[in-house]
Design a protein around this nucleic acid. Structure first.
Lengths: 337, 337
DNA sequence: ACACCAGCGTGAAACGATTCATATATGTGC
DNA sequence: GCACATATATGAATCGTTTCACGCTGGTGT
């Protein structure tokens, strides 16, 4: 069906070895021959078979990026960074989505291992690091993305979520806010737990301040609105004057609920608000939302770099962990007048 | 390095053919043998090599979906639908992003062809159908997604954007609006042009109504805000009372600019607004936005179905074109009182 | 006792590219 | 004219699966 090197060789009047050389090391072939072979390729519409090449090579030219949610702009940007860095190495990135399901994660990992990808970048669903151990034992490097120091056995790139949570809370404290609320959940998500822990620690430093947790089932706009509605009476009754949201979708939802109910609450005058992730919608919310920014593309690029390192890491050396610092972006939602 | 059938066969005391049979047709192997082979696989940690399998089979178990923008929720949902349908056939979907760049598109197509994917679903960047023709000539089925009847040579799934534009405009006309504005661009994007054409046609049916075009450079929140600012004085001066936006991002941007400037304009009392795509943010905008909904997941699923059809289509038969009807979703932004 | 069949297994050939040891031609220096 | 290096090309072996034409056993029916 499909044209192979054999036919190209016949057409150009050379051996198959030469065709392969033209494709991979053209400088070792006489210019005129290169020309002839190229012409044959063109005429026959030859397209190399990646499977055959890879079978021989033992490893594919792709690396996999398995994320929790492709819908989340955070991961889209991480992917962009990874792609750009991988392209420099001549590698393609396969993007896959686990949708926070362990089963989907496992099934994707199976496919990748069978594919003999040259490495796997994964933002893992909870638990189950045994499968990843196994994969690594089979010789495929693994790098954890957005998941950090708790898994010392794997190389990782992450952002310090504890610091980020603290940054958000401290900013509100500096604005004179004392009765804070933290909106986010479920807490089994590592990132959420860390951000909450950071915020708690920051609040604990101030004797007079308090932090109250408002849990959510997911990190969505709708959950944000729901909590916002719940918060509205409480703000005036219990004097809550600052809110830290575990991500920007929640923050936007909360803000809407506060601003547009009957008897709206003024942001930031009555309550100040800080989100997390700095997605583009945060800046263009009704009252632009202060947020904690993470170096998303850099995370992706670094992950690829760690992968290359892992591939050539000596057994004795420990895997490397890169932790980036989050950054506070101040907008109107947290600063009065 | 990696364990192969050969070693599994040795360990289980059978031939390689039998190992393969255990993997692919276990019912043709005695239960006890199956057991023994499975045990050997387990003990050795054998993982089949997809490249070898595919080399033999001549075709991969994956199909490719190449979209214009993974950041756009529209395409994410299309992908979800495609994945679900493909999974039923035991196929994996490779998702790739052309970012509206012909070069990136071409490079991805190259990779896919080399990979011998079993089919390509593509939402093409302008022009350049020759490459797709070529790919199809090489035996890989191609289906156009969100791109319709103008390319009769390829099977396609799309939504009738002319009808959608008409639906939006007609709805405003039915609400008694007569001086309409269309916000969107650039017009070289087929979808935008079609939606505008549909809206124009609907307006033309009403002798007394008019439609004025407000072009944008891209379909973003920011461009929406920009046009919204420009629109604000015009609305009262020239009596514009209805706005059709070419997508929801624009609609949301416009709405914000209208509602929150100094001297805000009331939506829908002073001006009614209809968006397009029905993304989740539309429903939770400050004033929930009426929109034109497209069956996104269905589009993905149908694309996979057309692909399967294409694979077995006789030369004589014409490729099939599926066009879905868009649907109006009415919310508060377009209905007074 | 014989032919025949079903059930299980076997192992070599094939898929298409790459590699590498080996051949051939060309040139250089003495 | 000879030895030797360099440039270029060859083609068989290899990667790990799947497939397929064939064996081998032990029944069954006659």
């Amino acid at each position: 069906m499909s044209v192979s090197v054999r036919e190209v060789a016949a057409r150009a009047g050379v051996s198959v070895g030469t065709v392969s050389n033209v494709l991979n090391r053209p400088d070792q072939v006489k210019a005129e021959t290169v020309e002839r072979v190229r012409a044959a390729i063109e005429e026959l519409g030859y397209v190399p078979n990646a499977a055959a090449r890879q079978l021989r090579a033992g490893r594919s030219q792709s690396l996999a990026l398995l994320v929790l949610d492709v819908g989340n702009p955070f991961f889209t940007d991480v992917a962009r960074g990874a792609e750009a860095r991988a392209a420099k190495e001549g590698l393609t990135v396969l993007l896959a989505n686990s949708d926070e399901s362990s089963e989907r994660e496992a099934s994707h990992l199976d496919v990748f291992e069978r594919q003999r990808v040259s490495g796997i970048l994964v933002s893992p669903v909870e638990g189950d690091f045994t499968r990843l151990e196994e994969i690594r034992k089979h010789g495929i490097p693994v790098v954890l993305v957005d998941r950090g120091a708790d898994q010392a056995r794997f190389a990782s790139v992450s952002v310090d979520d504890v610091a980020g949570g603290a940054l958000a809370a401290r900013h509100l404290l500096e604005q004179g806010r004392r009765r804070l609320a933290f909106v986010g959940g479920p807490l089994r998500i590592g990132q959420v737990a860390d951000r909450f822990a950071g915020a708690s620690a920051a609040v604990a430093e101030h004797g007079s301040a308090t932090l109250q947790l408002f849990g959510t089932d997911e990190m969505s706009l709708d959950e944000g609105r729901r909590v916002g509605e719940a918060l509205r009476p409480l703000i005036r009754d219990t004097g809550i004057d600052g809110i830290v949201a575990a991500n920007d979708l929640l923050a936007i939802g909360v803000e809407r609920a506060l601003l547009f109910g009957p008897d709206p609450i003024r942001v930031p005058d009555e309550v100040a608000l800080v989100g997390y992730d700095d997605i583009s919608f945060a800046a263009s919310a009704v009252v632009p939302i202060s947020s904690i920014r993470q170096p998303r593309e850099l995370i992706g690029a670094t992950a690829v770099e760690l992968l290359l390192e892992e591939a050539s890491r000596a057994k004795g050396d420990a895997p490397r962990h890169v932790v980036y610092a989050p950054e506070l972006v101040v907008r109107e939602s947290s600063v009065s007048g």
